[in-house]
Simulated scan of single mutants.
Amino acid sequence: MSVINTEIKPFKAQAFKDGKFIEVSDADVKGNWAVFFFYPADFTFVCPTELGDVADHYEEFQKMGVEIYSVSTDTHFTHKAWHDSSETIGKIKYTMIGDPTATISRNFEVLRENEGLANRGTFIVDPDGVIQALEITAEGIGRDASDLLRKVKAAQYVRAHPGEVCPAKWKEGEETLAPSLDLVGKI
């Protein structure tokens, strides 16, 4: 996983959002916080539970200035069909990127080359387009949008407060740490 602290690579892709097909590129991402939420495939089992969970928290992400981009190697047409046929996916208001060429999945190093599917990967990207956090899980392990919110808040806090870090289980408003020689061996 060499992508942490690296700038996202260039891409251009078709996506489905708000009942329309749109084009999305790396340039659209820069300037704002973003979460790239990769999943294996539309019309599957764990994927809709995860995407629905993120949809339930989308307004909170928006209030924090974070855009969500879900990505699979399906097409934007498949995303629309899934959106139109599933009650869970129908509530999604964030951008659903189609990656049939697997360019984006390769860029983020989540592609299963032998299957043409993306692993479950979550990437928090800062306004400079730099990957600040990532999580990869096995196909059978779903992710939790509440914990993703916590991680985004921590990433935003650290960016806004140079010299401070967020300890384990940190939640907004709790104490942070200021690494120094005085703290060595005292935590």
Rank of each mutant, 00 (worst) to 15 (best):
G52D: 00
R143D: 09
H161Y: 07
D28C: 00
M1W: 14
T44S: 15
K12H: 07
V165C: 06
M64C: 02
P167D: 04
L134H: 02
R106N: 12
S105V: 00
S180L: 09
E109N: 15
E109Q: 14
G116Y: 02
T95M: 10
I97A: 12
L51T: 04
T44Y: 04
C47F: 00
G98K: 02
K171S: 10
T88D: 02
L181P: 01
G19V: 05
G65D: 03
F21C: 05
I8G: 06
F61V: 01
A155C: 14
Y94F: 14
A160F: 13
A133G: 00
I8L: 12
A178W: 01
P179E: 03
D74H: 11
F16H: 09
P167S: 03
A13C: 05
L149E: 03
R150W: 12
T101I: 07
S85G: 12
K63R: 09
R106Y: 11
I124L: 11
T103H: 12
K186T: 13
E50R: 00
K63H: 02
F108H: 08
Y39E: 04
I136R: 08
T95W: 11
L148C: 08
K91P: 11
D26I: 07
E139F: 08
I22P: 00
L183K: 14
L177M: 10
S85Y: 05
G90Y: 07
A168G: 07
T6G: 11
Y39F: 15
P40Q: 05
G142C: 10
A145V: 07
A154K: 06
Q14V: 10
M96N: 10
N5F: 14
E23Y: 11
I22T: 15
R106D: 10
Q132E: 09
V24H: 04
D84H: 05
L51S: 04
G65F: 01
Y69M: 03
T6Q: 15
V130D: 01
N32C: 02
F36G: 00
V29G: 02
N119E: 12
D53N: 12
D84P: 01
Q132H: 03
E113S: 00
S86P: 03
E60A: 13
T103D: 12
I68G: 02
T122D: 06
F37L: 15
C166A: 08
K93M: 07
H76Y: 14
F61M: 01
V152N: 01
R150A: 15
Y157W: 12
